[in-house]
Design a protein around this nucleic acid. Sequence first.
DNA 1: TCCTGATTCTAGCAACGCTAGACAACCTGT
DNA 2: ACAGGTTGTCTAGCGTTGCTAGAATCAGGA
Lengths: 194, 194
Amino acid sequence: MSIQTRRERERAERERLIVTAARELAEAEGWDAVTTRRLAAEIEYSQPVLYSHFKGKDAIMAAVAVEGCAELAVELRTAREAASGARARLAAVGSAYTAFGRRRPALYDAMFTHAVDLPFATPEAPAPLQEAFGELVRAVEPVAADGDDVPLLTETFWASLHGLVTLMRSARLPEAGHARRLDLLIGHFTAGRV
Amino acid sequence: MSIQTRRERERAERERLIVTAARELAEAEGWDAVTTRRLAAEIEYSQPVLYSHFKGKDAIMAAVAVEGCAELAVELRTAREAASGARARLAAVGSAYTAFGRRRPALYDAMFTHAVDLPFATPEAPAPLQEAFGELVRAVEPVAADGDDVPLLTETFWASLHGLVTLMRSARLPEAGHARRLDLLIGHFTAGRV
DNA sequence: TCCTGATTCTAGCAACGCTAGACAACCTGT
DNA sequence: ACAGGTTGTCTAGCGTTGCTAGAATCAGGA
């Protein structure tokens, strides 16, 4: 029995090794550099070992994405708690979100851009995803008007932030005006309130 | 001389053949199905011919993207002209934009998601791109407050629409609430005006 | 000590984007 | 009308990708 648990523990450790190696490699050189061969070399095992842990490369990316969501949730909460006032909190969270996307582009891509079979907008979504969204909800709720559907409003706000991040990251929007664009967005989402 | 022009014309025709074949294949089966071999078979030429027209697959996607922008511009203009009143026009354009993204996902990806080396936010950007953005500007301008930087506000609005489209397309947002999310967005961008 | 079962590795498949060099077709000048 | 040379196209193949079948190896139990 103890042997069994030891093996399971070692397996779990190796699985974490795979996920963190994939993440570090992606952040350092982009997801294109994360090939199964390269990843296998990084963890000092052969290629097929990866497939005994994950269904494929996409599943590894999904695992990295979940990890990233946990981190994002923490950063959003920190930003929210550091600010006071409904508008300032929304601005802080929006700023933290976009900063996260710009600071960790590869991680962000795995989370929100890459096609992935993670359940998102359902109760079966992994906890870290729900926590990250929950942080957004807590920031949006105070500026919602009476009768507003808060989750829906949060989704809209989230989409706006996501658009800013992705369009800027692909150079479709110049980095220059980012702060002012964010300001405009916050301004419109808090117009008439506070 | 006439021979030369005939050859150039034939070359141009073949180039259009490549672009439309790529586009149709992508729209029918997604960009993953658009391989250089498959594309070559589709146009009934051998693979290397593609490379005498385009630098690589990405360049073909970029050409498709430019074509898509021209179409988007037309659809946005049509929507804008069909509506009356500043708010209604903004709503119509927003709706047309997201409808385009949902109706032609592959085309939309090439235009706004896929990493592409098209110059975007510069004067050197291809005309169709500038026209499409110009349509958005014309829709946003009437609802801008005095002193608002209209291009910047347009970029912000665009990003919001883009976020809605991409998050919904990857199932990170449920399709269900789309109309209401769009409504909320338009509401916030026109709050206090009109 | 040997057997059995799980685990890991070697080797390879099919498909990808892209390219070098052979081949064929065409225009040009006599 | 015919050789010469340029232009254009194709065949074949390189290196890499994600993924997998089957051989080999290691471990635990009798």
